[in-house]
Amino acid sequence: MPRRSHVPGREPVQHDGRVDFEPYRGELTAFCYRMLGSVHEAEDLVQETLLRAWKARDRYDPARASVRTWLYRIATNVCLTALEGRGRRPLPSGLGAPSDSPEAPLTPALDVPWLEPFPDARFDVEARADLRLAWVAAVQVLPARQRAVLVLREVLAFSAAEVAAQLGTTVAAVNSALQRARAALADVRDAGAVVESDDPEVRAVVQRYVRAFEAADVPALVRLLADDAVLEMPPVPLWYRGSGDYGRFLERVFRMRGAGWGMREVTANGQPALAAYAPTPGGGYRRHSLQLFTVADGRITHNVVFADPRVLDAFELPGEIPAGGFRRER
């Protein structure tokens, strides 16, 4: 069951009169995820936040701030501490030029702390443009305090005075940091132009992709791509730009793994995604990867393929599916 997010303005109270912190877990996890780019770290930091809040519960003063504001102050400080001395979490496209060789070695870079997807089904948080993978990737470039100001002001709609109190700084400093953060993200593609995952046109594109992928029909897959579509595959630092190279890489995949894949539709970061299961010699399916799509103007413009088992575990996907397990879904 997903954890319910708190509705601002309604303070959950237990039968003994104490405030219940648990309903805030989902939205705090989304906040920490935006800050760190990792759902695993976000969950750990939210646990630390709630533990600190519980230990300090007798010192909480409702006359000074709502519980929600107080929790975000704790969570912000926890995140800033966690980010000290760290680099950003990138995607492969943020580290270098695209490859032009579909036969390039698929060697994972396990020393890179890659950006992770956000498993929507596990957390009851509002699907917003600021959970989009491209937006979270762009925010990772900002200094930690600018990142906090941007998320607290632009995403969570705290006032400049509230953010100043949360960060222990001045309103003028908050406004200056917000201005710099906005300027740094000015070139990020407008997330509002990206159609929602439950849009009928988007679903139709994804379902056509499913049928073509299961059939290993590369020409049909390429027809669903924008001309400049991007394919990247963390933890492999390799990525491709253009439907031609994308298609040639898929030909390699099917040559290596064969046809007869199974696909399950999920969502991640508020975007359409597919859990891909490769065929096994016994006729069943083994969990292979998560493909997270950006769809615009009826075409797939970006596909980030995550193959790290730890990332896939966060989506609570079965590792094996028996033969016939995808017949109902096709």
Rank of each mutant, 00 (worst) to 15 (best):
G270V: 10
E41A: 07
A161T: 08
Q291K: 09
L133F: 05
Q179C: 03
F249R: 14
E265P: 01
W261F: 15
A56L: 15
G262W: 01
V194P: 10
R211P: 02
P108M: 04
Y277D: 00
P309N: 13
G17E: 07
G258Y: 08
E116C: 07
D44M: 03
V311Q: 03
A172C: 00
V174M: 04
R327H: 09
A161P: 00
A30N: 01
E43D: 06
V7F: 09
G87Q: 08
T267M: 11
A164I: 13
R34M: 14
Q47R: 04
R180M: 07
N269L: 06
V218A: 11
L115Q: 03
R68S: 04
L152F: 03
R68T: 06
I321V: 15
R153D: 03
S5D: 03
L185P: 00
L292C: 07
V13C: 04
P23T: 09
Q146L: 09
G168K: 08
E48H: 10
E201I: 09
G17S: 12
D20V: 06
D187E: 15
K55N: 13
G242T: 12
R189G: 15
R64L: 10
F213H: 09
P8A: 13
E27S: 11
E201T: 14
V295S: 12
N77P: 01
A273W: 01
E11M: 13
A186W: 09
H15D: 14
G247Y: 05
D111T: 11
F326C: 12
